[in-house]
Amino acid sequence: MSQPLNTTGVHHHAHHFDSADHEFQASKQGMWIFMVTEVLMIGAIFVGYLIMRARYPEAFHEAHKLLNVKLGALNTAVLILSSYTMVRGVSAAQRGNNKLTIRMLMTTIALALVFCVVKYFEYSHKIHEGTLPGGNYTYAELSMPHVPLFFSFYFIMTGIHAFHVLVGIGLMTWMIKRVKSGEITPEFFTPVELVGFYWHFVDLVWIYLFPLLYLLG
């Protein structure tokens, strides 16, 4: 999971490929397959959420009202914007504009950090109020059964997503280093493109999480 990149780290193609394009196509296919495993992993927890929500619709509805829709919407906007900056970064890398690539990657990292800060405030508010998963739930004003279950899913789902965001920040930092070293050229920009894939996927997961948890409940 921590190594979604399938690149060889050299800008001439590896010995077992015919050409750089051959290698790029293989890397891209590998990345797609990796994304499929990610979808299955996140999909499983979505299924778990939907099953429990179908069983206890009222509890889940009441619980979701305790989430802060404004902060959720803010984070959605932040991530959508970061997807845009990522697209520009990748396209700059393709054209060989290393300066712009680095600037866009840095902007994307900044937006990702904004996301994390907002998430931090949301989490700490919940820890403070006691709207915590399962057995740790202590919020006195809503004591329906199965409300804590909602927060179990909330923390697990957003937690896994946040973990992916952190991994994304690490990957983008690594990419900036590689661009700076001059490794990334219009002939070889596979790593940047694949990190772009990954980042869009992370955003996409949030696009599903936000309405599911914050709006529908």
Partner: peptide
């Protein structure tokens, strides 16, 4: 396709033990 589902299941089980999330625990609903 199947292994990631095991991965998340095992994560949930670890969370049960550490954070008492209660998804699989009848005592917690």
């Amino acid at each position: 396709l199947a292994t990631p589902v095991l991965a998340i299941t095992l994560v949930l089980l670890m969370m049960e033990r550490v954070f008492k999330i209660g998804i699989f625990d009848p005592a917690l609903g």
